[in-house]
Simulated assay, not measured.
Amino acid sequence: MFFTHGLAQQVHVKYYHVRSPIATLYEDLYVISIQDSIISFNSGGTTSAIKKSSKPVSKNYFISKITDNGKTKDFFFTGLNREMKYFIHDNVAKPVWKIDETKTNKILGYHCIKATANFRGSEVTAYFTKELPYSVGPFKFFGLPGVILDVRENNKNFNIWKAEKVELSVDPDINFTPKLDRYPKMNMKEFVEMKEALLHKEMTDIVNSMPQGTKIENGTFQKRPGLEKSFEWETMYAH
């Protein structure tokens, strides 16, 4: 994520990301954010690193820039739909944060302040530090007067990003300009609709294969399990 040009100080934050009840990974925030595609699956109190496939390990890249005087973020990322990888553009609106200066926490030695927001249908709580005065955070989070060092969905044991390391320097050998032209390009709306159309087809095939009379709970296949439960193009026309 771009935020260091023109400043003497550089920042690298490594986040531990609990993506689901069984999958965790790491996310690094520099000028760009890179997610490792080696996921740790937790079972029975033990942890083992398992590659997603036998293919060479690749990276998922997040590249972003703040636009419109800080009101939106242009977020470009590589996303997988089944076996096909795409390069997707998402224009993310700045969350409406409520800052509570009376609620603080110490994270990696930094004085952090509590903030809450509704991010695309999920209630989240973040802790940010003004000691690192850049309006950035992991994933698609931004818009606070300092780096977000911890952010998580309320009342969940996943959808969590917590900083494990902060460095005031960046490895000069890191490739901040990955070649991504080989991936088909689309916007976030197209990507979500494509994924959900495929999922709907698969779920329909499952239902049709069930014995006659099988009852399916209403809404079983309609709920989005991730952090992003609704999008701007959906809420825009909801009224």
Rank of each mutant, 00 (worst) to 15 (best):
49 A>H: 13
50 I>T: 12
51 K>V: 08
52 K>S: 13
53 S>T: 10
55 K>Y: 15
58 S>N: 15
58 S>V: 08
59 K>S: 10
60 N>D: 13
63 I>H: 14
63 I>R: 06
64 S>C: 05
65 K>H: 10
66 I>C: 03
67 T>K: 15
67 T>C: 10
68 D>K: 05
68 D>H: 11
69 N>W: 10
69 N>D: 15
72 T>L: 04
75 F>L: 01
76 F>G: 01
78 T>G: 03
81 N>W: 09
81 N>R: 02
82 R>W: 04
82 R>Q: 07
84 M>H: 07
85 K>H: 08
85 K>V: 14
85 K>C: 04
85 K>F: 12
85 K>R: 11
86 Y>Q: 01
88 I>E: 00
88 I>R: 00
91 N>S: 14
92 V>Q: 00
92 V>L: 00
93 A>E: 07
94 K>L: 13
94 K>C: 07
95 P>R: 01
97 W>N: 01
98 K>T: 12
98 K>H: 12
98 K>W: 07
98 K>Y: 09
99 I>R: 00
100 D>M: 01
103 K>I: 14
103 K>L: 14
104 T>L: 01
105 N>L: 13
105 N>F: 05
106 K>P: 07
107 I>F: 02
107 I>V: 05
109 G>Q: 01
110 Y>D: 00
110 Y>H: 09
112 C>R: 00
114 K>P: 14
114 K>A: 11
115 A>R: 01
116 T>G: 02
117 A>Y: 03
117 A>G: 04
117 A>R: 09
119 F>H: 05
119 F>G: 04
121 G>H: 14
122 S>E: 09
122 S>T: 12
123 E>F: 09
123 E>N: 14
126 A>S: 11
126 A>P: 14
128 F>C: 00
128 F>K: 01
128 F>W: 05
130 K>F: 05
130 K>C: 03
